[in-house]
């Protein structure tokens, strides 16, 4: 428990003492939001999602042989 507390304190103090790092973290969060919440959800639906392994194989077999 003591170790976990020390690890948490290590990170909290690390984040608190940042200056340039704060700007970078803001950038990282905006970037991840765009990547996962916008790009992934709206533009990158998984093309083979919802298909069983066999259905995926048959789908690709059709694609390769049509």
């Amino acid at each position: 428990m003591q170790t976990i507390r020390r690890v948490i304190r290590f990170y909290v103090e690390g984040f608190r003492s940042m200056t340039v790092g704060r700007t970078l973290w803001a950038l990282i969060l905006v970037k991840l939001f765009i990547l996962f919440a916008v790009v992934k959800l709206f533009f990158f639906p998984d093309f083979l999602a919802g298909k069983s392994d066999e259905e995926r194989s048959r789908h690709v077999m059709r694609e390769l042989t049509d």
């Binding site: 950038l27 990282i28 970037k31 991840l32 990547l35 790009v39 990158f44 998984d46 093309f47």
Partner: peptide, 17 residues
């Protein structure tokens, strides 16, 4: 590192889509 991190993830999205 901070600005570049996760830019490669888009490439992995593109493989699947």
């Amino acid at each position: 590192f901070a600005i570049g991190v996760a830019t490669g993830i888009i490439l992995e999205f593109e493989f699947g889509t």
